[in-house]
């Protein structure tokens, strides 16, 4: 029996786990959602354009609707008025999803330590890969995508391991909540009555 199959199929069979196969497929066909707000967005464009050609890495299918995407690239600073939009788009993306924070501004506020700029998007949404630089070179972004692919290949789907991981307190910690409370109290601001609810 076994020899029969062997004869028919020859070397054309590979054995692997379903997890690995699914992760491999996912990692190499990322559909990014370019959340390009500022200068980093232009570098994101040049990464996708002729010279650097992101499609060599299987993630050039930029889709502008969150429903079709599994990777959000936040390129540029996110400010007070934009963060509810960002959160809403993040919530609209289907699982499994990943996020790359591109540029100093998205990671930490960068040079803009001002009243309007959110000091790092990881305070408000989860982030998988951080890319430093102002703006990062296209090569750096490509490297980040490769790193993300490595990360994706480590998760699986058969036993829904990635969803388990999502509940574990991994990844970036929440923004120091004591500090947050202090700032809010000092200024008489309450979270409960904020005016812009991102999810509804």
């Amino acid at each position: 029996m076994a020899t029969q199959i062997n004869k028919q199929l020859g070397d054309n069979i590979f054995l692997t786990t379903l997890d690995a196969a699914a992760s491999w497929a996912r990692a190499n066909s990322l559909w990014p959602m370019p959340f390009a707000t500022a200068c980093c967005g232009i570098e994101l464009m040049s990464t996708a354009a002729s010279r650097h050609d992101l499609s060599r890495f299987g993630s050039e299918v930029m889709r502008f609707t969150p429903r079709q995407c599994d990777l959000m690239i936040v390129a540029g600073r996110v400010v007070m008025k934009m963060i509810p939009v960002l959160q809403r788009i993040w919530m609209q993306m289907p699982e499994p999803k990943w996020c790359i924070s591109m540029g100093a501004c998205a990671c930490s506020g960068g040079v803009f330590d001002t009243y309007a700029v959110v000091q790092g998007i990881d305070r408000f949404i989860p982030v998988d890969v951080y890319v430093p630089g102002c703006p990062p070179r296209p090569e750096q972004l490509i490297r980040a995508i490769m790193d993300l692919q490595d990360k994706i290949k480590k998760t699986g789907t058969y036993n829904a391991r990635e969803f388990q991981l999502r509940i574990l307190p991994d990844g970036p910690k929440r923004f120091d909540e004591d500090e947050l409370m202090r700032i809010r109290e000092r200024n008489g601001l309450k979270l409960d009555d904020h005016k812009y609810d991102p999810i509804h």
Binding site: T114, R123, I125, R186, N187, L189, D197, I199
Partner: peptide, 15 residues
Amino acid sequence: VKGRGERHNFPIITR
């Protein structure tokens, strides 16, 4: 310059 904490006043979404 750094505001009065408005920039921190948003809900947090975790994994």
